[in-house]
Amino acid sequence: MSILITAQTTFIVQGITGREAVNLTRENLDYGAKIIGGVTPGRAGRDVYGVPVYDCVRDIVKAHGQPEGAIVSVPPRFTKDAVFEAIENGIKTIVIVTENIPRGQVAQMVELANLRGARIIGPNCLGIISPDEAKMGGVGGPAANTRQAYTKGPIGVMSRSGGMTTEIASTLTAAGLGQSTCVSIGGDAIIGTSYAELMPFFEADDETKAIAIYSEPGGRMEAELAEWVKENNSRLPIVAFMAGRFMDEMKGMRFGHAGTIVEGKEDTTAEKIERMEAAGIAVAERIEEIPGLIRSALSSKGIEV
């Protein structure tokens, strides 16, 4: 199994005629995704690689039935409206690819999603992939590149960096560890779904045996994960890689994603590492240590992978 997306998941692409969206539509279709429609206001009647384009989500629902998911790839100014539209039309899993959205707007999207029982992944993310089943978003790039880096298996991956999602998957694949589902959760200060909020999904997925995460300075998400692990007595060993350790010495400077700015002590990598280790999460110094740490954590539970 996998989480969030399977080979059967139907979804739409909002902003489908945009340059990035055209690419990811092609890449997702090539990887086996079931894209039932696309939206670009004013472009109804066209098609993108055979996917019919509509003016609004409602028209897709009328013509093709209820899609389960949506990829939102529209300019920052229009993203909030597109996400509201998806939510109000019954879509439950929304991947927001767009970056540079002010966090006040992200907060509004997340609040409405919570109210309606929908889930947002991102913004500023590359989406979700369940290897050999389907992907939703730009994660992994063209299908051939995706197949080279991602293989099916027992490891769940969550990453604040889209590119590092693929680096980690590629490293796991090379070590003979496939992945159940990999989620690029986004690099912004406020995101739809955090590590801790995804953990129950992985916990409930029989196929997933361990978790690898990529984390960065800034925010409280790692602390939240550490708390979740302690409170829920998780069956899944977690290995974390922490990037941006140099930023601890550079308070107030922004590097990388919008979410990575060290403002207080709790934002530093040192503090995050301490909290995670206290919760039993192994922290790798290098990406290539992840497979070994996962195997030893699993074998101490009597699980060989």
Binding site: S161, A243, G244, F246, G256, H257, T260
Partner: peptide, 16 residues
């Protein structure tokens, strides 16, 4: 170096 997360990772690796 790049991309976002990769840059953070690589900058650390160089300094280390």
């Amino acid at each position: 170096i790049g991309a976002g997360g990769g840059s953070l990772t690589l900058f650390d690796a160089v300094r280390k």
